[in-house]
Design a protein around this nucleic acid. Structure first.
Lengths: 164, 164
DNA sequence: AATAAGATGCATCAGCAATGCACCTTATGG
DNA sequence: CCATAAGGTGCATTGCTGATGCATCTTATT
């Protein structure tokens, strides 16, 4: 029972962007900060863009940014969006000659697992990205990522006309 | 986010044994009924045996049986036992030179996912195998599996001296 | 003994997540 | 208007590991 790395990367990217505030970040920057595959991250970011979670901008000086305030991005929505297969078990196909679960009607397993999954998601739906950022060690991590108040070492100057 | 087939088979095996009551079933019989790999099922059953969920008996006339009444087998315990990896996300390794999540201290993701997982398991812990067997269509499935009152076609006669 | 069951270890297969690569599109800046 | 820096897109490849198959052993019944 695991979430895919895809979802993992998506959440980490959103957290990174949340920490960064209104400044844009490039995919490369995020990939290097987390030491993950840039190629893979490209796809994650793209999908997050199409899902309305981040706002991407092409071309020079482009990059990405949260499309909405962190407090309005529910963790559950992100997981639901990035995690494709939430089936938990195979149990497809009606019973018959070509395989399939012979118990399908009798066993309440499907509904039980569905109920459990709902409970899982309910917890994630109660929290937003903002909750994930509200940690006591926030300052230390900002510094470690080079995102501190001084913002040294990161070549992403405050975008003009985007002051919040 | 999926459970392994391993867990799936384990649950289906227990359901089958629960439907069969005090009569023993062979691995082959269960594999054929569900049209799944006998080889794989062998390992599942063995593990269920070592976990105290089923009682196996070697040799002629052997087979397996629930080790405890269905009402005393909690679904959550089965899943916990058969599903090895309940980590959900990678996020291991402390931050440092050799990879690892740089956000590890700041992000509350770990604890949030842990909370969600607990909610998931709590639902499964509220139900026992007996609950999974209590379906209205029970009779129909018994017949389909050849486990009906007549027990025709299954060469597993009522074991002597095991009347409950 | 013969046979029918489970026990066990090892080899192999296969699906798919993960990654890499090539190339395209878009935008900014000089 | 070209160079460059960003993201967009599709396809090829890799690699992990769950899943499967095979061979052989042990145990128990008849």
């Amino acid at each position: 029972m695991r979430l895919t790395l895809y979802t993992d990367y998506a959440l980490r990217t959103l957290i990174y962007l949340g920490l960064k505030g209104d400044r844009r970040a490039s995919i490369r920057e995020i990939a290097e900060a987390h030491r993950i595959s840039e190629n893979h991250l490209v796809k994650v970011v793209h999908r997050l863009g199409r899902g309305g979670f981040v706002e991407t901008m092409r071309g020079r000086g482009g990059g990405l940014r949260l499309a909405r305030p962190a407090a309005e991005i529910r963790v559950g929505d992100v997981v639901r969006f990035t995690e494709e297969d939430m089936a938990l078990v195979a149990c497809f196909q009606p019973p018959g000659e070509s395989g399939g679960c012979a118990l399908i009607d009798a066993c309440r397993l499907q509904s039980l697992l569905g109920e459990a999954l709902a409970a899982f998601m309910a917890v994630l739906d109660r929290r937003t990205l903002a909750d994930l950022l509200a940690a006591p060690e926030r300052e230390a991590v900002l510094a470690r990522l080079g995102l501190g108040p001084g913002t040294t070492g990161v070549e992403a100057p405050r975008a003009p006309g985007n002051g919040e």
